[in-house]
Structure formats: structure tokens, C-alpha cells
Simulated assay, not measured.
Amino acid sequence: MTPVIQEEPTGCGIAACAALAGLDYDTARTRAAALGIHANDRTLWSQTSHVRALLAHLGIEVLEGEQPFIGWDALPGRALLAIKWRLIDGVPFWHWVVFVREAGESVVLDSKAALRHNVRRDFGRMKPKWFITIGPN
């Protein structure tokens, strides 16, 4: 799996879905728009309903609910992680990233365009709050 770089400052949810589906950002953005999902909608990174709807539309199975982050070893093989979690005027916001464990190696695919490396292994620097388990497909 390869990271997809977000083309909009607030497009991390769309980029994460694109990475999981093996699509480029523009294709995922077009499919999201057909569902009424747009990167400039603050609920894309303050609620889970939009990414869940886009993932379902893209044929990606997700498990119900969010699980609290306990540790990197406790994560499933694929997960959508909420990092950089914060409250703004009492509303939670976060940055979406994708956790992948393949062939014994764990990485985080981070869509932020300003990063030097979008495949991250600096687990101590990331502080996930919770995650959504991505199904086996």
C-alpha cells in the first residue's frame, strides 16, 4: 500500500480513503463529491460518518465504532487512526492517517504534503487517540 498525498489542506480523510482503496487523490475526491463529501467540510475531520460513507462506497469494509488506542502492537493489520487529536471550541478535530502491517513491518501512511516522508515509522512522535478497524478486503 502506498500513501496518497492530500491536495487540499483539509483533505486527509479523502487521501486516507484513497490509499486504502488504491486510488489517486483526484479520483477519490471526485467519488467523495458525488456523495456530498468535500475536504472543506469540517465534519470530515471532526466526525467519522464521512470517511465511513466514502470507504463503503469504495468497497472497503470497516468495523463499527472506534477503539481507543492502547499501543502499536495492539492495532489490527489495517486501521484508520486519529492523530493530532484536539478540541477547538469544544469540538474534537484530528488528522486521519492509515496504519498498515504487512509482511511483518508496520508503517503509517500520512497524507500531509509538507512531510519529507509520507511512509512513517516514527511511532513515538505520533499520538493516536483512537482508531477504526479496516476489514479484510
Rank of each mutant, 00 (worst) to 15 (best):
V107Y: 01
W85P: 01
K112A: 09
A74H: 10
V4E: 01
P92C: 08
P3R: 07
E8W: 06
L44N: 14
A113T: 02
A34Q: 11
W94N: 08
F69L: 05
W85I: 03
L109G: 12
Y25I: 08
R42N: 12
F131G: 00
M1W: 00
A18F: 04
A74E: 12
P92A: 07
L58G: 10
D122P: 07
D89W: 03
D26K: 12
L23E: 06
F93V: 06
V62I: 13
T48L: 13
W72T: 05
F123R: 03
N137E: 12
A39K: 01
F99A: 11
S49K: 09
A103D: 15
K84G: 04
W85M: 14
V91A: 14
I134G: 02
V97P: 00
H117Y: 09
L115E: 09
A33R: 14
K127E: 05
G77E: 15
G104P: 13
L23C: 06
L115Y: 08
V107I: 15
L109Y: 12
H95Y: 05
T43N: 11
I83C: 09
K129T: 01
E8V: 09
L58R: 12
S111P: 10
P128E: 12
V91P: 01
L109Q: 04
T48S: 11
L55E: 04
V91S: 14
G135Q: 07
K112N: 05
I14R: 08
R86G: 04
H95G: 03
V51G: 03
E105I: 15
H95F: 02
E66P: 00
L109V: 09
H50W: 11
P9Y: 01
D26Y: 01
R29L: 13
L63S: 15
T133W: 01
R52P: 04
P68C: 10
L87Y: 15
G104C: 13
R101P: 01
C17H: 06
